[in-house]
Design a protein around this nucleic acid. Structure first.
Lengths: 208, 208
DNA sequence: GCTGTTAGGATACGATCGTATCCTAACAGC
DNA sequence: GCTGTTAGGATACGATCGTATCCTAACAGC
């Protein structure tokens, strides 16, 4: 076996180049030649390590999913000891919102993929999977919190989780569009969580 | 002046063809020739009525904005007499969520435009305007409701409105991705509004 | 009826795209 | 040292893109 090259490393290098382009200039700007230029290799190398463009796009989507998953887990792990449902929610939602430049680029690329998948059957199967696992996990957490008395009994945990995830996605869109800062988005989520975990009975009657 | 043709009508016809393509096959599939085919005219006609592709895209975006605006106003007008803040919010949020096939197509096209604008300076100026007018209008409505005692005094009207709009956008994304039905999305919004307009003091103490 | 403008048919331009092909330098195994 | 495989350079393919150009049929104004 001559000229040993780490194929996985090569593919990673090219996938990262693709995601940089997608995050800065959009999926529209992603072409085989642009990826080659961004990765500093020739067009032939891109062709050599991926059978076709679709395989490259699939790889980008897989990497993006892995990155988001990693971010969520890292945030969750960072709240060691802190096992309250609220801190878990804060970690997950904080991982979804773009904060630094890198997560902004990834979030942009993800949005581009999601939107493309809405009208592209080749991407739909991979990009439009329902985030069931995350929703189930958070719902379980919230149900436990409710049983412990940390959440008002008339609240529905699953609906609350669905609300929070949709809210985080909606806020992400506005942050990407620079309509609000990520701090402003975080403040809105905190406000919402404040109301969610408020004691059931307020002590003063409504003024009338 | 020979051969009188209604230019505005022609441009509308072409703009609608563009939006049909954008809503079904994405902005990616929008080309001068595809628009011509969709509108049932020759390429030359498309060129004749729009100086270039960018002008056509701008026209599509303008029309889309007008349609959304029209939908919101129609829903608002349909709740005649019903002047409660909640019914106004229901009307606006219901107009944002895709319900029938037409609003789904428009919502898809809008999402495609918004996403493209995130990485395309030529669209950014028009597509990424902050929806200040709507947010201000709803905030004023909610503030009035609060003064009338329909909203708990510790709620912040502007944050609540921002939350609702972001929630509606997030839910729209999930409806477009067929991750939930528009009925399920509406139920989530109703649930949220139930909590928002709940009497301040609940009558029972939290179980502990 | 002649003339000038308008609406649009026909065709071609260079650029860029994904993909295919051909070829060679470099090295592992014998 | 010869041989066969691998990694990648060079180049070309047909398709499609936005745009430009050339030309003519149809009609309003005189």
């Amino acid at each position: 076996m001559p000229k040993q090259v780490d194929h996985d490393q090569r593919r990673r290098q090219l996938t990262e180049a693709l995601l940089r382009i997608a995050g800065t200039r959009g999926l529209r700007a992603v072409s085989m030649r642009e990826i080659a230029a961004e990765a500093g290799v020739s067009l032939r190398v891109v062709q050599y390590y991926f059978t076709d463009k679709q395989a490259l796009l699939d790889s980008g989507l897989t990497e993006l999913t892995a990155r988001l998953d990693r971010r969520v887990r890292q945030r969750a792990a960072a709240t060691t000891g802190e096992l309250s449902a609220r801190s878990v929610l804060e970690a997950v939602l904080g991982a979804i919102l773009p904060t630094d430049e890198q997560s902004r680029l990834d979030s942009l690329a993800w949005t581009a993929y999601y939107t493309a998948a809405l009208t592209d059957p080749a991407l739909a199967a991979t990009a439009l999977i329902r985030p069931d696992a995350l929703e189930d996990f958070l719902t379980t957490r919230l149900t436990t919190a409710q049983q412990a008395g940390d959440l008002a009994s008339e609240r529905d945990p699953r609906t609350e989780v669905a609300t929070l995830l949709a809210l985080a996605n909606g806020l992400t869109a506005s942050v990407l569009g620079r309509q609000r800062s990520h701090e402003a988005a975080t403040a809105i989520i905190d406000y919402h969580l404040d109301r969610l975990f408020e004691p059931t009975a307020t002590l003063w009657p409504p003024p009338d």
